[in-house]
Amino acid sequence: MQELFNIFVKSIFVDNMVFAYFLGMCSYLAVSKTVETSFGLGLAVIFVLGITVPVDYLLNLYVLQPSALTWINPGFVDVDLSFLSFIVFISVIASMVQLVEMVVEKFSPTLYASLGIFLPLIAVNCAILGGSLFMQEREYQSLAQATSFGLGSGVGFFLAIVGIAAIREKIRYSNVPGPLRGLGITFIITGLMGIAFMSFLGIKL
């Protein structure tokens, strides 16, 4: 239990998807204009990561990794489908995102309108594919570990995007040089936040 909690906390702060690995930047920069929309996107990412990482974990364990298919027939020892990892992971992600898109469209048309093109772009949000690839690479030992890693990464992204949205709402009252307003200053703030988050790097839990 404590181990699960460690993985969870570690993936929020130490291995933060946005600040430590700089994944998921596109939607992070583009949808962080107001706290409200970034809140919605953050929740969507937690949801998608929380589902895709465990699903991809099971697929990796029972289908993709070398000699994974022995549970069907011991003769399949030599079957190695790992070259399909990318396409399988991305299909799982894309179907999840499509599902989220339909749900959001039905229940919150305003959020749907403000997320616009970025909802389909969650599918190519590298934070989400990154989640599955990290899961495969770090060889988590159980479904519970994979799930808590997925959820933790999602929460990390959520905190990051809500944080930058709050800063952007405040910075509107500051006298930023014209050409830097909006996107430019957001890039620079993110860079500075990233440098700050580097102080977490190397903490072992």
């Binding site: 700089f22 014209g178 050409p179 830097l180 909006g182 200053i185 890039f187 993110t190």
Partner: peptide, 23 residues
């Protein structure tokens, strides 16, 4: 992080030269 800051500066230069892009 420096890549972010360099891109930020490129945006600055680009928008200073073409003010129609300023948000």
């Amino acid at each position: 992080p420096m890549a972010l800051i360099v891109v930020g500066i490129i945006i600055w230069i680009q928008r200073a030269r073409s003010p129609q892009l300023i948000e």
